Simulated assay, not measured.
Amino acid sequence: MSYTGPGFEPSPPRRFPPRRPLTVALTALVPGALLGWGVYAAVGGPDDGGGGTDRTAASASASPSPRSPQSPSPRRSSGADGKQPSGAPGAAGPLKGKVVVVDPGHNPANFRHPTEINRKVDIGTNWKECDTTGTATNDGHTEAEFTLDVAHRLRTLLQEQGATVKLTQDGDRDWGPCVDERARIGNEAHADAAISIHADGSEAGNRGFHVIMPGAVHQGAADTRNIVDPSHDLGVRVAGNFARATGSPPANYLGEGTGLVTRTDLGGLNLSTVPKVFLECGNMRDSKDAALLTSGAWRQQAAQGISEGIVSFLRG
């Protein structure tokens, strides 16, 4: 997913001095990562338990990209294989009674429905397209397939912790849902936490992950004032645990080296009434990041890091 919008200018990367000896364990797990002090401190250190981007809108001439060989079929499990369907309660565990909504960005079939996904919807601050096709690697691995794969892995991990997990889409829709409906799904589920999974489509050389958190918005149908603080807490915990689990550094092209960005022009955040963040797992248009994003082993690490961040947030 690529982000541009009013009032948003990517911040130049900023170097930070090496951590003191106390943080050697974290450094060893995240080689080369330049985590900002805010992220590190908020997740409690190693002992915690737990730009010029292009947003591709669909067009009538758009064509599908081949599916990543590591990606499972996007069709929803019927339960015959023993897997729990989306929304099923998890096993007994520390998150028993908690509801998490996982939003896999885009839809693998969006490219077939340009009229529907280009329709404008009200996001409070302005009107934006219902959805987009997302981006892809230079080799044709699509963001939509990536997000669905990571969402499936994350769902399994969270259900093992006892959470009830609901996906906004599971490859079972012809297109969408629109960004306003994605927010509404989390709201109506009374989610204790919600996360939207994406991958960026920035320029080559721009590397790393970043977490997008809602800014304070009170306009039209949008009112994020009650979720800004808990969403920030969620974002910080996801960022720290994601970095540790994957070894990926925070983005070097925005967020000033913290991996944290605040936005007020994204419908999925503006219209949410529950704590919610977006996670850009890496840049699909950079060859080094793309090699990670298309690796099944790395995707499992990504899901593990996201899960640990959510568990940390929900357990306080």
Rank of each mutant, 00 (worst) to 15 (best):
51 G>F: 01
81 D>C: 11
68 S>L: 09
56 T>M: 10
65 S>A: 06
113 H>N: 15
101 V>I: 02
99 V>Q: 02
91 A>M: 08
92 A>K: 12
85 P>V: 08
68 S>V: 01
76 R>V: 14
87 G>E: 06
105 G>T: 06
77 S>P: 09
59 S>M: 02
53 T>R: 08
76 R>F: 07
89 P>I: 00
87 G>W: 08
69 P>W: 07
105 G>S: 13
70 Q>C: 06
89 P>L: 01
93 G>W: 06
116 E>H: 04
112 R>T: 11
71 S>V: 05
73 S>D: 15
95 L>Y: 02
84 Q>A: 15
65 S>N: 13
84 Q>P: 03
72 P>H: 09
100 V>H: 00
52 G>C: 04
52 G>I: 10
92 A>P: 05
86 S>H: 04
68 S>H: 01
71 S>N: 10
93 G>M: 03
109 A>K: 11
106 H>M: 08
93 G>V: 03
105 G>E: 04
111 F>P: 04
71 S>C: 07
65 S>C: 10
114 P>E: 12
89 P>T: 04
83 K>A: 15
52 G>Y: 09
54 D>K: 11
106 H>I: 12
74 P>M: 06
94 P>Y: 02
98 K>I: 00
112 R>D: 05
110 N>S: 08
100 V>F: 04
76 R>A: 15
92 A>F: 00
78 S>R: 13
112 R>E: 15
114 P>G: 06
84 Q>F: 07
69 P>C: 09
71 S>G: 03
102 V>H: 02
114 P>W: 11
112 R>M: 13
99 V>A: 00
80 A>H: 09
90 G>I: 02
104 P>V: 07
115 T>V: 14
57 A>I: 11
71 S>E: 05
60 A>H: 06
101 V>T: 06
98 K>P: 01
65 S>H: 13
76 R>D: 11
60 A>L: 14
71 S>I: 00
56 T>N: 09
99 V>E: 00
60 A>E: 14
110 N>E: 07
81 D>Q: 05
116 E>D: 14
74 P>C: 13
99 V>K: 06
71 S>L: 03
59 S>F: 08
79 G>Y: 09
70 Q>I: 05
100 V>M: 04
83 K>P: 02
60 A>Q: 08
114 P>A: 07
72 P>G: 13
94 P>F: 01
61 S>T: 14
70 Q>E: 13
111 F>E: 10
72 P>T: 12
70 Q>A: 14
78 S>G: 10
109 A>Y: 12
57 A>P: 12
91 A>N: 07
65 S>E: 10
57 A>G: 12
100 V>P: 01
90 G>Y: 05
108 P>K: 05
83 K>T: 14
93 G>N: 05
76 R>I: 07
103 D>I: 00
78 S>C: 12
70 Q>L: 03
113 H>D: 07
87 G>T: 05
95 L>C: 04
52 G>P: 06
83 K>G: 01
64 P>T: 09
108 P>L: 14
63 S>P: 00
70 Q>Y: 11
92 A>Q: 13
71 S>R: 08
71 S>D: 14
86 S>P: 01
87 G>Q: 04
60 A>R: 15
117 I>C: 03
70 Q>H: 02
113 H>G: 07
86 S>T: 15
78 S>L: 13
104 P>W: 04
52 G>M: 08
95 L>P: 01
72 P>R: 15
77 S>Q: 03
113 H>M: 09
61 S>Q: 13
113 H>A: 12
86 S>W: 12
109 A>D: 15
